[in-house]
Nucleic acid binder design. Structure first.
Lengths: 152, 152
DNA sequence: GCGGCTGTCGAGACTGAGTCTCAGTTACCT
DNA sequence: AGGTAACTGAGACTCAGTCTCGACAGCCGC
């Protein structure tokens, strides 16, 4: 049910996913996927651009943005908004509807499936008359590691 | 428990809130609060800037941004991220922890208190070992009005 | 294996939300 | 009423994200 942030967005799977969705597997895309795979936790576009430059990976800024957009579209990556207002991305190790629990210290993230939100949304629909078709839930806290590392 | 988006952020209450928090009540701030009060549903900074210009309200762009920041700090307004990635603000008719349910068509918003998230977060803590100290939950759907207005 | 069609790429210009600066103004305390 | 610190407006600035366009390279059919 939960997936550790370590096991992976296998680049090969992704190639298949992109292919199936009608996208070409190019060097630049492979490179960006590689950069993302080597990241732990959340990251933003500036991180990737810096990584690409540092590792002399062939991927221009615009391409990184474009690839991220595609990866988000196929659900390999998700855009999220940190509590501080910045927004960043996380790898999704899970496909389909899920949520993210992000460590506010080390940024490491865990995917969470099925949290019983349907009960809550049904209740809200009943109370308000709205028909709910989408929700965004993000959880933030300290991961076990950071808890021991940072004795509050 | 739910609060209709119609009854208000009374400007006077707000003056009190700002005062208590050590902020001065200036013409510009009163003006911005007025603009927000006359808005229904979510809005973004561009909306307010346009309103201010149209209504010849004395509030410069920078001041609108600054005031919005303060109002968010005192909880009179909340910044949220629409499903389309844009981000905007909503008036909070409720103080303290609550969530927003936003109509994806007319943008009208309803405040929701206590949705039983503690059960969920406790469960997640148990499963993951994280200590959760914050979450963001936003619900999107069609309000009763728009449901009848837009026979799908 | 080889064109050719088309999707993609890189580089850099562009856009626009949000921030910052600074000199002038104003709310509020005494 | 006067002093002071908070606030304001105007406009310069920043920087994430988008767009453009000529060059390039996957991938399909032959």
């Amino acid at each position: 049910m939960t997936t550790q942030a370590g096991d992976q967005l296998a680049p090969d799977d992704l190639a298949g996913t992109l292919d199936a969705a009608g996208y070409r597997m190019t060097d630049a895309r492979r490179a960006v996927v590689g950069l993302i795979a080597s990241r732990d936790g959340t990251f933003d576009t500036a991180d990737l651009v810096a990584d690409a430059r540092r590792r002399r990976v062939p991927a221009a800024r615009a391409t990184i943005f474009r690839t991220l957009e595609i990866l988000a579209a196929v659900g390999a990556v998700e855009r999220l908004d940190l509590p501080n207002g910045e927004h960043s991305y996380v790898r999704c190790d899970t496909r389909g509807h899920h949520h993210h629990l992000v460590c506010t210290d080390c940024q490491r993230s865990v995917d969470l499936e099925e949290l019983g939100m349907t009960t809550i949304t049904a209740d809200v629909e009943l109370r308000t008359g709205y028909v709910i078709d989408r929700h965004r839930l993000e959880l933030f806290g300290l991961c076990p590691n950071c808890q021991t590392r940072l004795p509050s």
